[in-house]
Nucleic acid binder design. Structure first.
Lengths: 357, 357
DNA sequence: CTTGCAGGATAAACCGATTTATCGTGAGAT
DNA sequence: ATCTCACGATAAATCGGTTTATCCTGCAAG
């Protein structure tokens, strides 16, 4: 077959010529501006499909101010939580007629700031940021400096420049404290094996406050580290070696999914039984947790709700419907009671209160 | 503080003026063209940093032909496999000085084609596609029609238009057959619970061929479905209800990660013990599989190798270093022998052969 | 002394859309 | 019959870089 490859794609002028109107008119039809006579509009539409015309978003973006693109920056895409979050964001964005571009900061604040600069260069309408550490990090500062529209998600508390959305870590962790205390546990290990972010701190405090309120004599140990996962096993072993017999904690509350897996693995290796020897509750549910034996009691985060809320508030700002001062949204978590914590009294699955303000 | 907000960002002309040269010269310096006198180049660089100048990628892209952007389209981001794949791609792209934009087809071929059209509109230099079904799907056809540079990944076999990269599903599945047959199992259930893609079919055939070659009397049942996960439980129960006693398979080979989880869960629910009552081997390893009890024997995919290979071959095409006909790359998998299949003889972890051509 | 040529710099055209300023037309008002 | 005004349509300016065609300068060759 002969090469008719190199026919370059039709421009708006080609369409204009074919329809017998000016380029400006075509542009109006394409963008749905109403001041065009219907017969002209019809001829334009015919020409568009006859020529297979597609608007060039780059040329379009050069002059036009507002782009219909939302940027998202997340710490990584290897954990199911962010994967689902991004999926939810993308779905919501699309439903509102926006495109999404995603990038990962790989837990680096410098990269985070770079990516945001890049998104600003591409003139995104707004940006969803899951900060590496907190709302006071480099990424958030860059957003502010660049005067961008944004919403901060997950590893955040209230902020004075941007809306924030996260799981209600504090309330959910308090519910875990309720649960463990009611089961009679008076010595708990709090274990955090990931980036010590705002979310992790909030979970920690939520638990600690409630537990101490219920029983001031409660013993709460902490084992926190953001070292690479495999390097953390020795620390766990050391801890248990140093706390044997009556000093061994009655329960572990692991503050992240990776943390849960790590602790479970080490508990197994020590030959302890869950929940007979030690109870385990994890923050952040995973699909394997209901299948493993024993199944793991965990706090499930409302990922979809977070995604929808985040995109909703962002778009409200972008489209100018919302102009008030920043709001912090706390989406309620669900605690899935399974086997790993035992159960002396039949506690119904608890829902944490909805947050607000 | 007074509002000095609205000072718009510096353009290349501002830099030119500040440096006392023309815009064309600035452009050359920025792109590293050599035909600029060093003292001029130096003044330009000084002006750039003095004015905080950043090149506008949109304006730049309008005239310039080649963009330094790679697009990636994956079926979803909720499974760890694609998450890690994307991370690997992004890292490799960045190392080569490219940016990446990711989008998810959500297992829809129509969406897949749309996304590719969109990436073409944005003039990406090349595209990494993990097709929803196979290299003959709508996405691949669109790539061909648009005459784009691309590499097809994961759910593919050889193609006559694009390089393809995937795990060596066939060889790895044959190794699983070796393994199960050597353990004495003569009745195996093959279970596939996800989109029945090319990869799943290849795994199935790889197993079947080797197993029948080793023992022509082997009984191999299949349970395949791409229905929503939770709707598939009844089918599993029905199967086991219809195949009890001596008809019960001695082993299950689950062809995807979700499949493994689903089967394990149902086996548990039936009160069967793994591996005493039934052996289980899964394709695609997950981090929880080494921690659960029993730990799961699984085939680990070389995600990083796949990502690097994919981006490497794509860039070779994009940069014109490679122009030969398409190559199929098969990256070797690793079989992680754990508890779920039992072990009468001590089989060392097997490595499948490297594929090629 | 003239011509040729290479190295560097630049003004102007260009990319493909959007936006602005202008213009023609016909209906309604005076 | 003349003047407005609203409505559509359009030519031209614009966005911010890249590319092209041209120009200048100085030096070597004829």
């Amino acid at each position: 077959m002969p090469a008719d490859d190199k026919q370059k794609r039709a421009t708006i002028h080609d369409v204009a010529k074919a329809a017998g109107v000016s380029a400006a008119t075509v542009s109006k039809v394409l963008r749905g501006v109403k001041t065009v006579r219907e017969d002209n509009a019809e001829r334009v539409r015919a020409a568009v499909s006859a020529l297979d015309y597609r608007m060039d978003p780059i040329a379009s973006g050069l002059r036009g101010e507002q782009r219909r693109i939302i940027g998202a920056v997340v710490p990584d895409l290897e954990s199911a939580f962010f994967g689902r979050l991004v999926t939810g964001l993308e779905r919501a964005a699309e439903a509102a007629g926006y495109h999404m571009i995603v990038a990962t900061s790989r837990e680096s604040e410098a990269r985070e700031a770079d990516l945001i600069q890049g998104m600003n260069d591409w003139r995104v309408a707004g940006c969803v940021l899951v900060p590496v550490r907190s709302e006071r990090g480099l990424g958030a500062r860059t957003l502010r400096d660049l005067d961008m529209q944004a919403v901060l998600v997950d590893r955040v508390s209230a902020d004075d420049a941007f809306d924030t959305v996260s799981a209600d870590n504090h309330t959910a962790s308090a519910a875990v404290a309720d649960f463990l205390v009611r089961l009679g546990h008076r010595h708990v290990l709090l274990h955090g094996a990931t980036q010590i972010s705002k979310a992790i701190r909030t979970r920690l405090e939520g638990f600690r406050e409630r537990a101490l309120a219920l029983d001031p004599g409660m013993r709460i140990d902490e084992l926190l580290s953001d070292a690479p996962l495999e390097d953390q096993r020795p620390a766990i072993r050391d801890y248990f070696a140093a706390n044997q017999g009556t000093d061994r904690p009655a329960a572990v509350f692991s503050l992240s999914q990776q943390s849960t897996l790590l602790v479970l693995s080490e508990i197994r290796r020590m030959g302890l039984d869950v929940p007979e020897d030690i109870a385990l509750v994890g923050f952040d549910d995973a699909d394997w947790m209901q299948t493993t034996w024993p199944s793991i009691t965990a706090v499930a985060q409302p990922v979809t709700a977070i995604a929808e809320r985040a995109l909703g508030t962002l778009l409200a700002r972008v489209e100018g419907e919302s102009t008030g001062f920043p709001v912090q949204y706390l989406e309620p978590c669900t605690m899935l009671v399974r086997q790993s914590a035992g159960q002396t009294e039949k506690a119904p699955p608890r829902r944490s209160r909805n947050g607000g303000q």
